[in-house]
């Protein structure tokens, strides 16, 4: 009898050791590499998945734009706009069901990963990160917004979201003409840029069929050009204005993944703020909120990797800590003191 309990105890001990080992392994991991590979694989999968007849449906919570024929999933905003533009009486008829299903699928996708879609999966986000690496290689410094500009500009994504939601309803109600159909898509830089991935440059043109179309598509082209210039000088330039990001934030509480902060462990050193592509100040300064997800956040988790205080920041799934800040991990990633060349930097 006695031996058995000891054995069980030992097994338990082994298990918890195992758990700790896995936990340490993850917390000490090199987030840059992990992200790079996940982003690359998702990019290929979502942008070229169509070739392989992969289809994830039309409620994807990221900018996988169907104007590129080969995507394996389509951005939810386009279906949302089309559905909202249906004549308003449909809203109370059985035809409402597809809209509802669309929303549910979007939510389902979203519940699984939350904003991590942005940090790890969105091809449009990934593209911006690649442009950033290019800039880094050339050795040009990135720019930042002043706090004042940040606060002003941060509202733009809600303006876009309003466009996404309101204009289709106006079409449905017959207030504006069909030329406004999928208003946001006409302006969206992803419509212009995504087809380029498969060599299609045809979207770089202005639709002269009506004044409305002309203005909207011209805006699209300007935004697309801005996208390249902007993301060259500013990290994740576009994400800051993205209506999808705003939509994500609205549903953030439904998700099984949570981004948490333990303020009592934070020293407000600002390391997390320094590395944040989105310039989110609360990540360092707010020591009261436990839910630290902010509307601009793309859940890239760079801040968690850069925080030197054990468990001050952590990324949870079902309330289990999946990735936590640790001093050990911090020192490994920053390569403190050792081997000064090898710090995860690509430059020399």
């Amino acid at each position: 009898m006695f031996i058995y309990t000891e054995e069980i105890e030992q097994n338990l001990l082994k298990k918890s050791n195992m758990k700790n080992k896995i936990r340490n392994f993850i917390n000490n991991g090199d987030l840059r590499k992990v992200r790079f590979w996940i982003q690359l694989v998702s990019f290929v999968l979502f942008v070229y998945g169509g070739y392989l007849a992969i289809n994830f449906g039309s409620s994807f919570p990221i900018f996988t734009c169907p104007y590129n024929q080969d995507v394996s999933a389509t951005c939810y905003l386009i279906s949302l706009q089309h559905q909202l533009a249906l004549p308003s009486k449909i809203l109370f008829s059985p035809a409402f069901i597809p809209i509802f299903i669309g929303l549910l699928t979007f939510l389902a996708w979203f519940i699984v990963l939350n904003k991590a879609w942005c940090g790890y999966m969105c091809p449009f986000g990934t593209l911006q990160d690649w442009i950033t690496s290019l800039r880094k290689k050339i050795g040009i410094r990135f720019s930042v917004y002043t706090r004042h500009h940040f606060e002003q500009l941060s509202k733009i994504k809600y303006v876009f979201l309003t466009i996404v939601l309101l204009f289709p309803i106006l079409i449905g109600a017959g207030v504006i003409s069909n030329n406004w159909s999928a208003t946001f898509c006409q302006m969206c830089p992803a419509r212009v840029i995504s087809p380029m991935f498969t060599g299609d440059f045809s979207q770089w043109s202005i639709d002269f069929s009506s004044k409305t179309n002309m203005i909207l598509t011209a805006l699209g082209i300007s935004f697309a050009s801005l996208f390249f210039i902007g993301s060259f000088v500013k990290k994740r330039f576009f994400c800051f204005f993205c209506p999808m990001s705003a939509l994500h934030y609205i549903f953030a509480n439904t998700s099984i993944v949570k981004f948490k902060k333990n303020g009592s462990k934070c020293t407000r050193c600002g390391d997390c703020y320094t590395v944040c592509d989105m310039q989110i100040k609360d990540i360092a300064d707010d020591v009261i909120s436990t839910n630290i997800l902010r509307d601009d956040c793309i859940l890239c988790l760079k801040c968690v990797a850069a925080c030197p205080e054990d468990d001050a920041l952590h990324f949870d799934i079902f309330n289990i800590k999946i990735f936590s800040s640790t001093r050990e991990g911090f020192e490994k990633r920053m390569n403190v003191g050792f081997n000064i060349k090898n710090d995860g930097e690509t430059d020399k």
Binding site: F142, R268, P308, M334
Partner: peptide
């Protein structure tokens, strides 16, 4: 409090360091 840097540019090092010494 240790300094973290995303891109090792002069001004980013300076800023990150400054923040740590103040905040």
């Amino acid at each position: 409090d240790m300094v973290a840097i995303d891109e090792w540019n002069m001004y980013d090092m300076m800023d990150s360091m400054s923040d740590k010494y103040l905040k």
